[in-house]
Write a protein that binds this DNA or RNA. Structure first.
Length: 942
RNA sequence: GCCGGGGUACCCGAGUGGUCAAAGGGGGUGGAUUCAAGCUCCUCUGCAUAUUGCUUCGCAGGUUCGAAUCCUGCCCCCGGCACCA
């Protein structure tokens, strides 16, 4: 290869694609559509390897689908609202808008350098009023329909971010973004009623292709529990409270009830009584505790008696009402019926406070109703001890249903499905987000901003770092009431930025429309997203909000799509090795490489860890592109691991991939230099290549990118090398396969492929990026035979080489010649008969009598043949794969094939001569026919 | 505790009843080419061995003519949920 070969001018190709407008999604036409999307990025200033991996995957899919005749929508934009920009503004001065624009410009440039085939004409950015106007419009629509509402509620407050957080955004009691502590705070906030769609979100999971773990995660998060809501009255009063339980079958065992100390009824029950003081103490203890701490402390169960009694809805029994620190007001109804015999928590509590425990289920059908309860029996059981007729003996779901029916007929309960997911808290006390389009008027109350006044734009005259920035802008805060015209006050909270990302995929379908959020026809034409690629970190937040929003917008009549994304692919992490101390179990910063563990002084090993700034094991995409080019980086990233698997960054592997690229770059010239005649190998390469195209399509259709790249960049080279090795040099074969090979190569390394495409003799100025892949003909039986013969030779050589090594030890020197002994024809005949027998459905063991009747087994060798069958042929019959079986049944003449190739075989094995004989024939003097099998000749070296 | 995903050779990683001592890549090895290095091509890379045998796909059993693959139990890793009503 010439070392002075110029690198592929990637930037030039990118410019040409751009000028030719190749990747603009069309707005009509009869082609089927394909919507390929990656989670739109937050515009930090630098592209990292995670981005590169994500987009390399998406781009390969988009390019492939275009080539397969689809109208592809493959857009890119920015999730440009959010706190990093605002925090940067606070710490370094400046304005979030400017910082965001600056970062966007820089990351855009880096993304473009990779040559991804985006339709940049549809680029959207969340912080553009043309975009966020529609967030506001949706919000007012939701307000009208009751889906959005304002409530005073205890909310999660992140101290360091200075804002409230949605439930989903609190991880282990800490803020998902800054990891700071989260407190409970009572505030008036805006909520969107996501639970209204909980059932649909739950059921929809069965209609889409998400990875199993993502579905499981979403189901957990939605938290469906089926049960009953039951009304308990308070003795000597009109008061009632509701409890939710998944176990109505244990209702007769309820010996007390527990309310959350902050339950709306609690204070009323104890005020002015001797129990007030105890309640107050418990109340004060829990009320300021974050939910996380509360749950964490649940093992320290504590309760106080209220002095009041509840009425059991079915028996009318008086049961004491307690307050418990383990009951949380915002979960379910904030009250529980306590069944100590069949619930562990209630059991512990009853023991602690000496409350009666009543068995109402037995775990065996004939179990004793009076058996003592030493530990809560929480499994399903048969009802016993029901104080009312008609329940004893019922089991499980049957029992639950019957209890529910009884409650329903008394009007004291009903079947109910409870969800863990709670309304989406969308208010944020931050600046860099969509202003909530609401005006608070003294006389009219809450008034949404009319559509004609949208968007409510973010003002520039704000002060950062002193509470809610929008409150510092007088021009923003003061506004006339849209209803009465009086002076009123604008809502100063902004929306959670997940609002932006929950519908951007719809906007892409009609991104430049300023009349409506998106045209219905456009949305319906492109939706759902066919292929959505992004990180697992969005499995519950973004992916739930987006699914919810799609359904909510559908119900506004804006689209017919039920789900946003059909197939989700979560790409694996990009890892790189980092110092690791096995005894301390910690991964350390790369600064420690080569030194002993700073904690225990043990020598450090290495371990693969997610690329992160704190460990310092990051690799800069820019630097890699500079060194090797975008194509090499893409090839490496797609080939190093399956899209969903974690991949380890390896500099040596990257270099190896670069060598592959250099080698590929030289191929067109190499092919052009071919000047040989046509040969029998031509048919082989043609058939082989044809098969490769089929395999490639199959792999791409299944998003098995690694396999696809392996075929286009590795296997085909090997095939061609073999062809050349076997004497093939036919230029017409070269020009026949070259265009399709170029197309396959273009999916992952598009720049190189354009060089190839342009190098063709009859190049017409088109791009491979716009070409259509011609589907190869299906493989013919003749192709099969051609491929099989060659495979036979390759297998033979492999076997021969192994044997040769050992043989030469015996010979005490280099072997000079070999006699190849083809298996005697009766063995192949036997194999054919057996294969036929099994194909017909016969059990291998029953083949013996069949064989005994065959003509070959009639002579004096009958015994030998029967033994051979049992010992050798039977196991072998099963070892042959479909291809080999086909070959055995086919016309392929082993002797002929090897004979034809004997010169090649001799030179490949470094022998002077190779003779091929049929075992047990007159010309076979070796007496080694015994070990020869069909497709596996014996070889005798000398 | 519950749910989901995993455990394959020096490393990464394919493989879901026979093509499996197990693809491919990395790393390593030997050879061809070269004045030489690099690149490229070819070989080998569990152990033994004239073409075959033995051991091996987390561990232990089982089903089968045949198990990395199916079943049962166990161990370990990753992710999620969790005194949840």
């Amino acid at each position: 290869m010439s070392s002075e070969m110029l690198p592929v001018d990637e930037v030039a190709w990118q410019k040409k694609w751009d000028e030719a407008d190749l990747f603009k999604a069309t707005t009509g036409g009869g082609k089927p559509t394909f919507y390929c999307l990656e989670m739109y990025p937050y515009p930090s200033g630098k592209m990292h390897m995670g981005h590169v991996r994500n987009y390399s995957i998406g781009d390969a899919v988009a390019r492939y689908k275009r080539m397969m005749g689809f109208d592809v929508l493959y857009p890119m934009g920015f999730d440009s609202f959010g706190m990093p920009a605002e925090n940067a503004a606070i710490s370094e001065g400046g304005h979030p808008h400017d910082i965001t624009e600056r970062n966007m410009a820089s990351i855009t440039q880096q993304i473009k350098r990779m040559g991804f085939s985006y339709d940049w004409s549809r680029t959207l950015k969340s912080h553009d009023p043309r975009y966020y106007k529609w967030n506001q419009w949706f919000f007012t629509k939701f307000y009208e329909s009751g889906l959005a509402r304002r409530e005073f509620a205890p909310v999660n407050w992140c101290v360091s971010c200075n804002t409230v957080l949605a439930n989903e955004q609190v991880k282990a009691g800490r803020c998902w973004r800054c990891n700071g502590p989260v407190e409970q705070k009572g505030m008036s906030q805006w909520f969107i009623d996501l639970p209204a769609y909980a059932q649909e979100l739950h059921d929809g999971l069965d209609t889409i292709k998400f990875p199993e773990h993502v579905k499981s995660l979403q189901r957990d998060w939605l938290g469906r529990s089926e049960g009953a809501e039951i009304t308990f009255g308070v003795v000597d009063s009109d008061l009632t409270f509701e409890v939710f339980t998944t176990r109505p079958d244990t209702l007769f065992g309820a010996t007390f009830a527990t309310l959350a100390p902050e339950h709306p009824l609690s204070e009323q029950l104890v005020t002015g009584t001797e129990f007030e003081e105890d309640w107050k103490r418990l109340y004060d203890e829990v009320v300021n505790m974050s939910e996380f701490d509360r749950i964490k402390n649940m093992n320290k169960k504590k309760g106080v008696f209220s002095g009041k009694y509840a009425v059991h809805p079915l028996t009318g029994d008086r049961i004491p009402i307690w307050f418990g620190n383990f009951v949380i007001a915002t979960y379910g109804t904030g009250a529980v019926m306590a069944v100590p015999a069949h619930d562990e928590r209630d059991h512990d509590f009853a023991k602690m406070y000496d409350i009666p425990i009543k068995r109402v289920l037995v775990m065996q059908e004939d179990g004793s109703p009076d058996a003592p309860v030493n530990r809560a029996d929480v499994d399903d059981g048969w009802m016993v001890n029901s104080s009312v007729e008609g329940f004893d003996g019922l089991y499980g779901q049957d029992a639950r249903d019957t209890v529910c029916s009884a409650l329903e007929s008394k009007g004291l309960g009903r079947r109910e499905v409870n969800w863990k997911i709670r309304p989406w808290l969308v208010s944020r006390q931050r600046y860099w987000g969509t202003p909530i389009p609401i005006i608070h008027c003294e006389s009219c109350g809450v008034v949404p901003v009319p559509e004609k006044d949208l968007p409510v734009e973010l003002p520039r005259d704000v002060v950062f770092g002193k509470g809610n920035p929008l409150e510092t802008s007088p021009t923003f805060v003061h506004a006339p009431c849209p209803a009465c015209g009086e002076d009123a006050r604008r809502e100063t909270d902004t929306m959670d930025t997940f609002m932006d990302s929950s519908w951007y995929f719809l906007r892409y379908t009609d991104a430049m429309n300023d009349e409506v959020c998106f045209g219905k026809a456009a949305a319906d034409r492109w939706m759902m997203v066919d292929f959505y690629c992004g990180g697992i970190e969005h499995a519950q937040m973004h992916l739930i909000y987006a699914r919810f929003m799609t359904k909510a917008l559908r119900d506004l009549g804006l689209t017919i799509a039920d789900e946003p994304f059909y197939e989700l692919l979560c790409q694996g992490m990009v890892n790189k090795s980092a110092p690791y101390c096995a005894s301390c179990g910690v991964t350390l910063s790369v600064d420690h490489a080569g030194s002993p563990c700073p904690h225990c002084d043990a020598p450090l090993g290495e371990r693969s860890a997610k690329m992160s700034k704190s460990i310092g094991n990051t690799v800069s995409p820019e630097a890699m592109i500079e060194l090797y080019g975008a194509d090499t980086v893409r090839l490496f990233i797609l080939f190093a691991a399956n899209p969903t698997a974690g991949m380890d960054w390896s500099d040596t592997a990257l270099e190896a991939n670069h060598r592959v690229m250099l080698q590929l770059q030289a191929w067109p010239e190499q092919l052009r230099s071919w000047n040989g005649p046509s040969s029998p190998m031509d048919a082989w390469l043609t058939a082989r290549f044809n098969k490769r195209v089929h395999e490639f399509i199959h792999a791409m259709d299944n998003f098995d990118l690694r396999r696809a790249v392996e075929i286009s960049h590795y296997e085909i080279i090997k095939d061609i090398n073999w062809y050349v090795r076997r004497g093939g040099q036919n230029p017409s074969v070269a020009s026949q396969i070259f265009p399709q090979w170029t197309q396959m190569v273009s999916v992952s390394t598009p720049h190189l492929a354009e060089d190839w495409w342009a190098s063709r003799e009859h190049h017409d100025g088109t791009f491979v990026a716009e070409s259509q892949l011609e589907l190869p003909a299906s493989t013919t039986p003749k192709d099969h035979l051609t491929l099989a013969s060659e495979q036979y030779i390759r297998d033979f050589l492999e076997q021969a080489r192994k044997v040769q090594n050992i043989a030469e030890r015996h010979l005490g020197g280099q072997a000079k010649s070999a006699i190849v002994v083809i298996s005697p024809s009766w063995k192949r005949e036997m194999a054919r008969a057996a294969l036929g027998f099994i194909t017909e459905g016969g059990h291998p063991k029953q083949f013996v009598p069949v064989l005994a009747q065959m003509p070959m087994a009639q002579g004096e060798r009958k015994g030998e043949m029967m033994t051979f069958w049992g010992k050798k042929m039977l196991p072998q019959v099963f070892k042959w794969d479909d291809a080999s079986r086909e070959v055995i049944v086919s016309e392929l003449d082993e002797q002929q094939v090897l004979q034809h190739a004997s010169k090649f075989i001799a030179s490949d094995l470094n022998l002077e001569s190779v003779t091929v004989v049929v075992g047990e024939s007159d010309s076979d003097t070796t007496e080694r026919a015994g070990s020869a099998m069909p497709l596996s000749p014996a070889i005798v070296y000398s």
